[in-house]
């Protein structure tokens, strides 16, 4: 479903990704862990071309997306993205945040878009917040609204970039619960996270990244219980 081949990304002289090859299958849940600055977020952002790779290929559903003549806006509709800082649109209500893209990009009729948005809000437990502005939502509510917004485009794959890192501790649980619901619905997900317990519980596979490379990967019980690589061991001993 997602296939990444020899992906590299440099910012000027700084090499952030140094040749990453990885495949994510349909309905697979992959968590990416690793120390700060290891390139996790950049890897995720390359998948929907928020960062343009310096070299390498990215395929979504077998189609290469990082070449000329590809309509990136069309590809991005298959990829939902959730950001660390939510990035809700502050000048729109929660409902408008969710419906703007279906209405403007997919040309969904407004009534239908709103009906679908209400269902999504119900799913994330925010049906009573439809008409308020993001400013009056708590962090956890903002992130749940942002997840609903991404889901409104009916993506095949959801990308999460440290979705709970900006949250107060007591709000982490409600966001993780929504993500677990998505896992149970069979959504394909790539999650960059520092929530090791969550990664261990929900993921089919864990990737450990360090210095722009995937150093080790495997099923969560392998990685967390019996890591092979020295750097993985070192990292996990500090965070677990």
């Amino acid at each position: 479903m997602i296939e990444v081949s020899n992906l590299s990304k440099s910012f000027g002289k700084l090499e952030v990704l140094r040749g990453i090859s990885e495949t994510v299958r349909e309905s697979e849940v992959v968590c990416v862990i690793g120390p700060s600055g290891s390139g996790k977020s950049t890897f995720l952002r390359c998948i929907n071309l928020l960062e343009i790779p310096t070299s390498g290929e990215i395929y979504i559903d077998g189609e290469q997306i990082n070449k000329k003549d590809v309509d990136i806006n069309k590809v991005r509709k298959k990829l939902g993205m959730v950001f660390q800082n939510f990035n809700l649109f502050p000048h729109m209500t929660t409902l408008e945040n969710i419906t703007i893209s279906p209405i403007q990009v997919n040309k969904t009729p407004k009534v239908e878009a709103e009906k679908e948005a209400m269902e999504l809000l119900k799913m994330v437990g925010l049906q009573d917040k439809a008409d308020v502005y993001p400013a009056s939502l708590s962090g956890g509510q903002k992130q749940r609204a942002a997840i609903a917004r991404a889901l409104a485009m009916k993506p095949e794959i959801m990308l999460f970039d440290e979705p709970t890192s900006a949250l107060d501790p007591e709000m982490v649980g409600e966001v993780l619960q929504v993500m677990k619901d998505l896992v149970n619905q069979g959504m394909t997900m790539v999650i960059v996270t520092h929530e090791m317990g969550f990664a261990r519980e929900v993921s089919d596979r864990v990737l450990f990244m360090d210095e722009g490379l995937i150093v080790e990967q495997g099923r969560p019980e392998e990685i967390f219980v019996n890591p092979q690589n020295e750097r993985t061991k070192n990292f996990l001993s500090k965070v677990l």
């Binding site: 929907n48 928020l50 806006n73 069309k74 991005r76 509709k77 990829l79 939902g80 993205m81 950001f83 990035n87 809700l88 649109f89 703007i100 893209s101 403007q104 990009v105 997919n106 942002a146 917004r149 991404a150 485009m153």
Partner: peptide
Amino acid sequence: EAARSLGM
């Protein structure tokens, strides 16, 4: 980024 990631 959020707008572009939503397909706009």
